[in-house]
């Protein structure tokens, strides 16, 4: 029985990696712009759909197949660019408004994007299996495990390190952190805050799209997934702490492993386990593991 544990842990880390990428996009927007982007799940979906289209196109051109992985990055980048369409036009007017309006506006964007994906890619499920199949699998503890899953875990970890380095050490990162802490003072110091906001929003959408792009070769994508993904990212943001990068990382790992072992030992609990963890965290330490109380 215990020989399966490495596989269970790897599965947990796999799920954690996707959750981390997804929720860090939401987190970074929340921390800097102080907006909870309800449409964030839509960018995950967009990233996934774009990957299916780009991979299909790439395979058709007959270029060397191992370069297909670039399509994942391309799809994520395009998701970010789509975010760029929304921020200056729709979001900027409402930064000064009441919170509920921001939520409602992003909810409207969620609805619109849901139908746009239906119109563009149709109603059925779409797949992009080539990146997944290409790498094959190995056995661990007597159970086969695909190499692609290891790739996803690695990407999640690398992104975490890069983000941490970016925010802690680089100049732009520090400027962004300053903007998050105090908008007015930063403006008075001569920083172009609206431009920072746009940059951060686009980056958040890119991360969400990257999560979708990495996930779709393993699974499939169909309309209606946006709300699910949004709720998952909420849960991680709450558990880890709003605006906290380390929190999102640790929180994702906790949720990923809990879910993986939960399915094994308590199969009935899968539906509710995320929310139970979320309630416990909110009751015991509402600012999350690494968050700060406002």
């Amino acid at each position: 029985m215990f020989e399966a544990y490495p596989a269970y842990i790897l599965n947990g880390l796999l799920y954690a990696s996707l959750l981390f990428l997804l929720s860090s996009g939401l987190n970074v927007v929340l921390g800097v712009l102080k907006i909870l982007n309800l449409a964030h799940g839509s960018f995950y979906v967009l990233g996934a759909y774009l990957t299916t289209s780009f991979v299909a196109l790439f395979v058709a051109t007959g270029l060397p197949i191992y370069l297909v992985y670039t399509q994942i990055l391309v799809a994520a980048a395009v998701a970010g660019i789509i975010g760029f369409l929304f921020e200056p036009t729709l979001l900027r007017p409402i930064y000064k408004r009441e919170e509920s309006y921001q939520l409602l506006l992003t909810f409207g964007i969620l609805l619109v994007l849901s139908d746009v994906t239906k119109i563009v890619w149709g109603l059925g499920a779409k797949v992009a299996p080539e990146p997944f199949k290409l790498l094959g699998s190995f056995t661990i503890g007597g159970i086969p495990f695909p190499y692609y899953n290891l790739l996803v875990i690695a990407v999640g970890f690398v992104v975490f390190l890069m983000l941490w380095f970016f925010f802690a050490k680089t100049r732009t990162g520090k400027i962004i952190r300053a903007t998050a802490t105090n908008r007015e003072v930063t403006t008075s110091l001569g920083v172009n805050v609206p431009r920072i906001f746009t940059l951060v929003f686009v980056f958040g959408c890119f991360l969400g799209g990257l999560a979708g792009a990495l996930a779709v070769p393993m699974q499939s994508i169909f309309p209606g997934l946006a709300m699910e993904m949004l709720i998952l990212s909420f849960v991680i943001v709450v558990i880890g702490g709003m605006g906290s990068l380390e929190g999102a990382f640790i929180g994702s790992i906790i949720v990923g492993i809990a879910r993986s072992f939960g399915i094994v030992y308590f199969p009935e609990i899968e539906l509710a386990i995320l929310f139970i963890i979320m309630i416990i965290v909110l009751l015991v330490r509402p600012q999350g593991l690494f968050g700060r109380r406002e």
């Binding site: 729709l90 909810f107 409207g108 609805l111 619109v112 139908d115």
Partner: peptide, 9 residues
């Protein structure tokens, strides 16, 4: 959903 989303916005 498109219709309702547009109304909300």
């Amino acid at each position: 959903e498109l219709f309702f989303g547009a109304i909300v916005i």
